[in-house]
Amino acid sequence: MTLRRSLVGASVLTLLLVVYLVAAAGRGLDLIRTGVPVAVAIGAAVLVLPVLGVVLIAREWWLAVLVQRMSDELAAQDRLPVDDLPRSPGGRVDRGAADVAFAAARSQVEDSPEDWAAWFALGFAYDAAGDRRRARESLRRAARLRSRRPTGAR
């Protein structure tokens, strides 16, 4: 249920962002069509935002697809990291428990730096610790390592 709610939420936010980017692109094109050199320059600059936005949206959705594939593979092997960290009544992860889980995940990566599953677990440990940027970096690293492994390798 939570997964579906999260997917719907992400889809709605993506759709709203796309609407905004289309509107921004339209304004940029309107400025370019004026033919006034300053307006053309501003219009061209405005068009950078929608292009960058589309690239970033595509990058994040592709990461989501790869994370789901990695999750499915680890679940099939019964190796999926379990989120059993204690939480406050408001849902926040206990900081001390997150730090312990993070240390274990980091140690696993240090022991096996080419193991995509270790990087996957580290990504979720970063997420539990509240560091979303490093969580995404770790998950991207896991996806790169997974894509480089020989066919049939674990």
Rank of each mutant, 00 (worst) to 15 (best):
L49D: 12
P50G: 02
G53T: 03
G53I: 00
V54L: 13
L56A: 15
A58E: 03
R59S: 11
R59H: 15
W62P: 02
W62A: 09
W62T: 13
L63I: 09
L63K: 08
V65C: 02
L66P: 02
R69C: 09
M70K: 07
S71V: 09
S71E: 09
S71R: 14
E73N: 05
A76D: 07
D78C: 06
D78M: 07
L80S: 05
P81Q: 06
V82W: 00
D83L: 05
D84I: 04
P86E: 15
S88D: 09
S88W: 01
P89N: 06
P89M: 01
G90R: 14
G91L: 06
G91I: 10
R92Q: 15
R92W: 13
V93N: 03
D94I: 14
D94T: 11
R95K: 12
G96P: 12
D99P: 02
F102V: 00
F102R: 08
F102W: 08
F102E: 10
A103L: 05
A105Q: 01
A105W: 00
S107W: 02
Q108C: 13
V109I: 05
V109P: 01
D111T: 10
S112Q: 14
P113N: 12
A117E: 01
W119C: 06
L122M: 10
Y126S: 06
Y126T: 04
Y126V: 06
D127K: 11
D127C: 04
G130N: 01
R132E: 10
R132H: 09
